[in-house]
Design a protein around this nucleic acid. Sequence first.
RNA 1: GCACCGGUGGCGAAGUGGCUAACGCGCUGGUCUGCAAAAUCAGUAUUCGCGGGUUCAAUUCCCGCCCGGUGCUCCA
Length: 492
Amino acid sequence: MSVRLFNTLSGQQDEVTAADGDVLRMYACGPTVYDFGHIGNFRTFLQVDILRRTLKLTGMKLRHVMNITDVDDKIIRNATAAGIPIGEYTAKYTQAFLEDLASLQIEEPEILSRATEHIPEMTALVEKLAEAGAAYKTEDGSWYFRLAAFPEYGKLSKKDLEGMTDGARVDVDEYEKDSARDFALWKATKPGETSWETPIGPGRPGWHLECSAMAMKYLGESFDLHAGGEDLMFPHHENEIAQSESVTHKPFARHWFHVRFLLVDGRKMSKSEGNFFTLRDLLLKGYRASAIRLALISVPYRHQLNFTFDGLTEATNAIDRLRTFVERLKGATLAAGTTDELQAAAAKAEAEFVAALENDLNTAEARAPIFDLVRTVNAALDTGKVLAGDRERALEVLAKFDAVFAVVADNDAAPTAAALAWAEASGRMELVAPELLARQSITDAEIEGLIAERNNARKQRNFKRSDEIRDELAAKGVMIEDSREGVKWKRK
RNA sequence: GCACCGGUGGCGAAGUGGCUAACGCGCUGGUCUGCAAAAUCAGUAUUCGCGGGUUCAAUUCCCGCCCGGUGCUCCA
């Protein structure tokens, strides 16, 4: 049992291993908390979550660090515009980010580290780089990394520095750099900007620096795996490697995991295209958190995912099939014992599920055996061939599936309720879909009452009234099933 | 321009040098039901963008072309 993953650095599939033979040490680039997270962000975090959960499934222990970038140009700009300290500004979006992770059933890393709480670690790294001759200070007090000091630059993204044009873009505040490609480690204070008094002078950290400093603080100079979105490969991760390895002369991370960008309706998501969605946007349109999760994880991480509302609907329906199955199985009256066929079917599904995940996290392939098992057991249930021991085994396999996919257990009410509360509190009710409001407009007690009335109508064979009630409930997203065991209902 | 990725049924999406090309959603029909729903069964790609080539055999390998997308700049 071992997970094989594509490694950007080696360019091939490598087995994921813990160098210390015990705990896998991994670092994943987290969000810059200047706004609410969008589904593109979450596809990456979700795929890292799949990785996390798969590794745990195979018995690995984890020490996973994720940074929160709580100081950067956009944050300073927005906080200044809002007239509040950046700490206050970022606290709000950090909180929102953590809530969104919870909504999507994304496990929190063992360690969440904020950039602004690691300034000393960062300046110390700059000092070490300066000692090694890889960093220099310019006249305005900024510090830069000297690319020429790191010949291996480009080894991750397979870029050839020679072929890159020098000086194509130079920021106004970077005119003093030795080479246009040298990148900022530490930015000198500008008037009115947040800054820290430090041994290397006043200023604030460049973006890349925090990840090197924090990764090494919590994971050591060399660790097992580093994850992030594909866009970070260059230059961010390349810069992290340069900053770290110039000091340690050890491989920074052995395995690099990059998640492909998603598209929305076939285009890159952007605010100007009008195809930009935050998690809240989707919840308020009436989609459930689990469907968003499933839609974003069902396409393997190395492939481009085209996000559509049809895809969300499909995911919703697929989840319903699984949830209905689990309920049916749990509620069935079964005799004790096991059958060879169903035990074998469960074992096969379990083995294929795990094997697919171990094969570079092939989530699309991993789903298939689970649905196969559902069909097999449903069919057996129809003909009364399932025994209690078969049920236990099937539920065990479903639980294993959900330990990674986390969509069958229904945790959808809270995220939707929270999104609605947010919309109300922030005066954004126009974002709420009418269907969602309709669904919220009926209480469980009212539903039960209508169902009781419908049952009476049915007893009297007054099907007209019975169907009216069913339609009325359907309009409010309540689905009814008349089963042998009585009437069942569920909200959409 | 340079680099990279993809083009599989109505849609999404696996996969493999040679078993009936997974799985999900949808649709059509049967069973069940007062009717539905759920479930199940059957059908839904004689075929994997197009044209060549290699091979006993290619959707799978190679070449060319067409189409779509992405990166090369802040970005998950």
